[in-house]
Design a protein around this nucleic acid. Structure first.
Lengths: 211, 211
DNA sequence: TAGATTGTTAATCGATTAACAATC
DNA sequence: TAGATTGTTAATCGATTAACAATC
């Protein structure tokens, strides 16, 4: 019953803390204060302490934070102590790019299969993982445990596939299709809208006095 | 001298308004009220009106907003009335996926070239656009006008390339490398940190009571 | 004109920053 | 013990929502 609701802003920052702590760990840094970390990350020390204290006191007065310990704790908060099974729907360029991004495996995200509608792709393998016909998605979902589906299909196919996946028991979708999926709210949807990202860049470029 | 500073939150929402208005336009919807739009988008009507009024009064009392007009105006705000030249640094899976995403062209973003260090890739073409050796980047930048560089190289090469691009006059970077680029602040950096996005999904999945 | 809906001001809410007592 | 730095409360700041007069 951990009922303290974590704000969206805090959740957004957590992975970035995790990344910086991982970098420090690689450099064998043992301890770090909120002040030092805040300077590295260009945020306030106050914010770091507030953010972390949403989840408990990981530091020690007069000392700071143990990098190794804090990294592990944030990892747990992010659910990286659990194993996740992913499938990718849409084995086009983007789907294949994700499939090849082996770094995810390191964090406990195992790619189990890809699905596509294109006969030219079906049967091919990426890193030894087979591309299956989308018709087999339903039976696959019934016979295998999958928690996350990455949606890298064209915009017009996305909602139907998403609705089906929801029906077949998916827990979360990583949506790359440029549309908002409308799903039962117990299903987690994390959107990556690349087109919107480029438009933000464009806006900032346009409103940049210095050019 | 348009000195009313636009908040980050507003900028983030603008491309989504633009997408919804584009969808309405496709469906030949002529007018829409902030109330109707707010219901479609699951936001408050108040927020829509506040956001738009950062840029001027685009609506009409008693009527609402003309979809066509509002779409065009937001397009201008986003800088889509201007032509942009993009290069992609790193022609791996992700770089190629972006290069193939022809939809960007439609919005005035023209892909001019890709660059890579891998001899196996150099000389290949994607949609008729050549992959050049990274050694030629400096001379290319001097001989061509490029405003945006998409960075899809591995983490360890990213900062050096980014610093060079900055030196050679790039205006904006669309950064896909899992690191924070540290650049002069007149250079726009728009980050797409896929790994962080997946960790956010993971967090929300873990803290989801309903599973 | 009456009805509808904007543009905008005021009120509320939430997030960030500052400050400092607690404590290692 | 003295110095450093956390955890946490209080103050500030900014963003969202509500309300309504202006006006089409």
């Amino acid at each position: 019953m951990d009922e303290k609701k974590i704000s969206k802003a805090v959740i957004n920052r957590l992975p970035r803390y995790y990344r910086y702590l991982g970098d420090l760990l690689e450099k064998d840094v043992v301890r770090i204060s909120s002040k030092e970390l805040s300077e590295m990350m260009s945020v306030t020390a106050s914010q770091i302490r507030q953010d972390l204290n949403n989840f408990g006191g990981f530091g020690q007065q007069g000392y700071g934070y143990n990098v190794d310990y804090l990294y592990a704790e944030i990892g747990k908060i992010l659910g990286l102590d659990k194993q996740h099974n992913i499938i990718i729907i849409g084995a086009g360029n983007l789907g294949q790019a994700l499939a090849n991004y082996a770094d995810f495996e390191r964090r406990g995200f195992t790619l189990k299969s890809l699905f596509d509608i294109d006969p030219k792709l079906i049967g091919n393998e990426i890193r030894g993982i087979k591309i299956r016909p989308i018709d087999e998605l339903e039976s696959y979902m019934k016979e295998n445990y999958v928690d996350i589906a990455a949606i890298t299909v064209p915009r017009f196919n996305a909602s139907e596939i998403a609705n089906n996946l929801a029906k077949w028991g998916i827990k979360a979708m990583w949506n790359f299709a440029p549309t908002d999926l409308n799903l039962p709210k117990d299903i987690v949807v994390e959107n990556v809208h690349l087109a919107e990202s480029l438009l933000r860049l464009s806006f900032r470029l346009s409103s940049n006095k210095s050019n």
